[in-house]
Design a protein around this nucleic acid. Structure first.
Lengths: 342, 342
DNA sequence: ATTAGAATTGACAACGCTGTCAGCTTGCTG
DNA sequence: CAGCAAGCTGACAGCGTTGTCAATTCTAAT
């Protein structure tokens, strides 16, 4: 049959189970001090009546709002956000938490005020903080001041007691660079990511390490600053390709910039990967849809978001703090934008 | 100074203004039967104390949850979702409504059950229904049965009393086809969109109308069914390009499929737009980032979402029903994937 | 002035849950 | 078998708002 027309209240369950509402409350909230038999009896009634606690009453009565906030930079690649959102939602929902999204437009001089308002108005109990928000000191400082726990998904230096989800950006960048070196490339351009993202430094470090390992000289001229957007990638490619000794491969710190590089290369009549190999980072939705399909690095965003939300909720529920997670593994995805140098 | 440490309650406002809490409630909820002078006095106290009603208490006391649900197909193009979300949020927030997102994976045989659960658990008062959800009869039927108002953003036949936001897909498709005809194309392939989307039929109709106006013959062989995804676009292009008399231009019902067409063309060594002109629909994020940049149609999604949320909230607030909006105007964006036939 | 009727205001009981604390059961110990 | 601590359970008072309805104040027509 269909679910009941009128939602059952805690009172109904209590009556059905022959206990007080307080006992039902204890069972539903998984509190101690309930005899096993009683617990089972109550649980049975909960099932039968399809009882779902009323969130508003819960919040009003207790102190818990069970709201998790996910704030993010509005300009972000949305496939990333989508994974993030789906991962977090997938954990929050069954745990009885509401996930609230809040886009932020960066740079925002009043960012702390905006976040504070959001936290207050939406009664946010904990935040999921993807890059680059977890990288902004004023944001983490605010949250600490407000005593709101958060789980940062970004390679920041982890503070004790704070939840940090990271992936091995550096190793992935190293592998990607090594791939190009193995393909015979000796002058490899690098386009750095936005300096406000912790991942940018990691990716750059991986590049340098790979050069070093293979005894290739590092040249600052082959490195340009980018900002994770298409245009800055294209502009950086323009500079790199104008060098007297242009690179035969360019590694961009994300796919948007890599797309900009491809765009610039095509505009100059260069064939990719024939004349120029190009690799990106992130495996965004379009990276397999452009021509040529992009060699890139895939992060397990969904898993990372799930873990972030899970640890955060554990913390909100007062569970024991888990040991910090090992970094998640990135995966190099080799497609057709990179090739052997002939 | 910073906002108050402890949030002010209605009681504080009442005391400050020298009225009863009920009167404050009336003012805050914009109810009638409050003398102008009293209203102003209360409003002043509200400002001074930065009073924000407690959402949980409000919901528990009254019947209103002030939650607007936005359900969407998870596979949707994200830039579209992002616009949708930002537009809706931009209206909901200042109106004191919480916007809750809920991705759905289609096809879903239990879709009504999932939506029902979401509506019940999250106490959703009204839904924003983007395509293709607004096109599914079981979804609209469920919402009608549950007596939950909704605003559909899709070209469905509008029922009386229901909110419908549409844009002139048909006219835009007509213009786009006409553009190709003006460029000298005479055999123009068309890839239909997903049959479950109301927009698909409209876009196809625009194509046929344009052919008719210019007295070009309609050939069913030049039309293939697609499903709005990259792969179906590529597959359709494969068939079309294998025709004994292949088209010199292909119009895809969205950008993902157009990207598939470009991909297929490149795979065959065809130059775009030299050998084949290609146009899409939607102006997604990557359409200007691929090579060649895509000629496409941009919909004012943000505005449409704002309007949808606005009308929905008006309805929830019991305001007078506005006259139905005129369809929103789409804009043809001409880029480099289309060119004159030489 | 007077008074019906409309406009305005306030007292008070919900709303469904959790926190507090007192009271009742157990199971053990001596 | 009394005595006591630990385990379990329930009564009851909020939480901050809105709905109801009665009380009060206006308004305007006698």
């Amino acid at each position: 049959m269909n679910p009941e027309r009128t939602k059952a209240t805690i009172f109904d369950v209590a009556r059905q189970a022959g206990v007080s509402i307080k006992t039902v409350s204890r069972v539903v909230n998984n509190e101690p001090n309930v005899r096993q038999r009683t617990r089972e009896k109550v649980l049975r009634s909960v099932q039968e009546l399809r009882y779902q606690p009323n969130a508003a009453a819960r919040e009003l009565g207790g102190k818990r709002s069970r709201v998790v906030g996910l704030i993010y930079e509005n300009a972000q690649e949305f496939s990333y956000l989508n994974d993030l959102f789906n991962g977090a939602l997938h954990i929050c929902e069954p745990a009885g938490y509401t996930l609230l999204l809040r886009p932020l437009t960066l740079p925002d001089p009043e960012i702390t005020e905006h976040i504070r308002q959001f936290a207050l108005n939406a009664r946010v109990e904990g935040f999921v903080l993807p890059a680059p928000l977890g990288d902004l000191p004023e944001v983490t400082a605010l949250l600490r001041e407000m005593k709101i726990p958060f789980a940062a998904i970004t390679p920041r230096e982890s503070a004790p007691d704070e939840i940090n989800i990271l992936c091995n950006d550096e190793a992935a960048s190293f592998s990607l660079t090594e791939l190009l070196i193995d393909q015979g490339h000796r002058t490899i351009g690098f386009i750095k990511g936005h300096p406000d993202h912790g991942a940018s430094a990691k990716r750059f470090a991986g590049y340098r390490q790979a050069l070093k390992k293979h005894s290739l000289p590092y040249s600052a001229r082959l490195v340009r600053q980018g900002y994770f957007d298409f245009d800055s990638g294209q502009a950086a490619a323009d500079k790199l390709l104008n060098l007297s000794e242009p690179p035969s491969a360019i590694l961009a710190s994300n796919d948007d910039m890599a797309a900009g590089v491809i765009f610039e290369a095509r505009g100059r009549g260069l064939s990719v990967p024939g004349d120029l190999s190009i690799a990106g980072f992130d495996d965004t939705r379009f990276s397999s849809r452009i021509w040529p399909p992009l060699t890139t690095v895939r992060q397990p965003i969904i898993k990372m978001a799930e873990t972030a939300a899970g640890l955060l909720i554990d913390k909100l529920n007062g569970s024991a703090t888990k040991a910090p997670e090992a970094p998640f593994e990135c995966e190099v995805v080799i497609r057709e934008s990179t090739a052997f140098l002939d």
